[in-house]
């Protein structure tokens, strides 16, 4: 192919219909190679909303995020949990190598306050990650959050019930989780790039590489994590 054309095709604003967007998006590796491969940019995207839909709790919806949260622990900035439905359990989080020093639990009394807090946390740019459990979403509220995430460049995660898959959402990445034997089936409902019809299967039993290689400060190259 013509070199000039190739350069154009490599541009981040261009994607070809037959593949996942090559965007040089700012991402955080998920810690699951199979999932990284399926996500544009190779990880959780920063500066946008990610929606995680699941029918029920307790199938591993938080476990899915732990490696990324552990990675983010090396960066400055809060990991803000807005209106979590239960108590985020400190011993388990510490074991997952999440830096609790950076964890901020926000428990607003009203729904309106919760949306406000999520928006502030995203917009401020002071949160590396914002995990939010918000009720009564509508498109306008979601769009505001998405804009706040764009402004603050943080990783915004919104947990929603599975039926929300039917509704429209401005979040560019939407995943639906289903429990699978010894793991998790991740359906990618929406992503920048082509559609994926098969779910990504994650197996908890697979030995994962160390989440936080403490030797290097550079963006973590995944392969020599075992150092």
């Amino acid at each position: 192919m013509n070199a000039a054309l190739e350069a154009v095709l490599r541009h981040s604003a261009i994607w070809r219909g037959d593949r996942c967007a090559q965007a040089s998006e700012d991402t955080i590796a998920t810690g699951f190679p199979a999932l990284d491969a399926a996500l544009p940019g190779g990880g959780w995207p920063r500066g946008v909303l990610t929606e995680i839909l699941s029918e029920q709790e307790g199938i591993g919806e938080l476990r899915l995020l732990m490696p990324a949260l552990a990675r983010l622990s090396d960066e400055a900035g809060w990991q803000t949990w807005i209106a979590p439905p239960h108590i985020p359990y400190a011993p388990a989080l510490a074991a997952a190598e999440v830096e609790l020093k950076r964890l901020l639990v926000v428990t607003p009394k009203s729904t309106g306050d919760a949306w406000w807090a999520a928006e502030q946390a995203l917009r401020s740019g002071a949160s590396g990650a914002v995990l939010a459990w918000l009720s009564t979403p509508d498109e306008r509220r979601l769009r505001r959050l998405q804009l706040a995430a764009e402004e603050g460049k943080g990783w915004g995660v919104l947990f929603r019930p599975a039926r929300a898959a039917q509704e429209r959402s401005p979040a560019p990445l939407r995943l639906r989780l289903e429990s699978a034997p010894n793991g998790l089936a991740v359906h990618i409902l929406k992503r920048r790039g082509g559609v994926l019809d098969k779910p990504v299967m994650l197996d908890w039993r697979e030995p994962r590489l160390q989440a936080r290689p403490r030797t290097s400060l550079a963006p973590i190259p995944f392969r020599h994590g075992a150092a």
Binding site: G58, P84, P85, A92, V98
Partner: peptide
């Protein structure tokens, strides 16, 4: 906020209590 310590973790505990 900011005073949490990650020293004593326990991998056999659930993330939600």
């Amino acid at each position: 906020a900011g005073q949490g310590s990650s020293i004593s973790g326990n991998a056999h505990r659930p993330l939600w209590l």
